[in-house]
Amino acid sequence: MKGDVTATAGTVPYTGATSGDWTAGAVELTSYPVLTVAGTDVIHKAECTFSFLGKNSGGAVTGSSTVTLTAGAQPLQGGLSNVLVDGNWNKDAYGNTLNVSATGVLRTG
């Protein structure tokens, strides 16, 4: 559901950098407007672009990486396509991560 996806910045430097930091941008969500739990839209896709600012011996290094989390098949979907549920996650090669920690009652298990 909206608000259940968190972005965590990775620790692996961007390609060509020897040090630096990742910063998470806003998490963009794609929801099903007609499927809700306790009045909150249920989502099936989350995406976040992470930005890197660092350096190497030659100077500043900048970069970005987008992590996309799409839902897999779940047992109960009300005839709709897949939905994100508690425990879904995805990460890139730099360790930037999107994670679902569901607080609503729409869970599998």
Results as ranks from 00 to 15, higher is better:
residue 25 G to Q: 00
residue 94 Y to E: 14
residue 8 T to H: 00
residue 40 T to S: 08
residue 18 T to K: 10
residue 58 G to D: 14
residue 70 T to K: 07
residue 43 I to D: 02
residue 24 A to N: 03
residue 73 A to C: 00
residue 60 A to F: 05
residue 104 G to D: 15
residue 96 N to A: 09
residue 37 V to Q: 01
residue 60 A to W: 04
residue 69 L to A: 04
residue 72 G to V: 06
residue 6 T to P: 02
residue 104 G to K: 09
residue 72 G to T: 13
residue 61 V to A: 10
residue 14 Y to N: 14
residue 56 N to D: 13
residue 109 G to Y: 12
residue 37 V to C: 07
residue 42 V to M: 12
residue 97 T to I: 02
residue 31 S to Q: 06
residue 14 Y to Q: 13
residue 84 L to M: 03
residue 3 G to C: 15
residue 46 A to N: 01
residue 19 S to K: 15
residue 72 G to Q: 09
residue 32 Y to G: 00
residue 96 N to V: 10
residue 44 H to F: 12
residue 105 V to P: 08
residue 55 K to H: 01
residue 77 Q to S: 10
residue 19 S to G: 14
residue 7 A to P: 12
residue 1 M to P: 00
residue 35 L to A: 15
residue 97 T to G: 05
residue 24 A to D: 06
residue 33 P to I: 04
residue 89 W to D: 09
residue 1 M to Y: 05
residue 52 F to K: 02
residue 104 G to V: 12
residue 3 G to T: 09
residue 13 P to Y: 11
residue 93 A to L: 03
residue 18 T to V: 13
residue 77 Q to E: 14
residue 63 G to W: 05
residue 22 W to K: 02
residue 60 A to T: 15
residue 92 D to V: 12
residue 57 S to D: 13
residue 12 V to H: 00
residue 20 G to E: 11
residue 72 G to S: 14
residue 99 N to R: 10
residue 13 P to S: 14
residue 106 L to W: 06
residue 61 V to G: 06
residue 9 A to W: 03
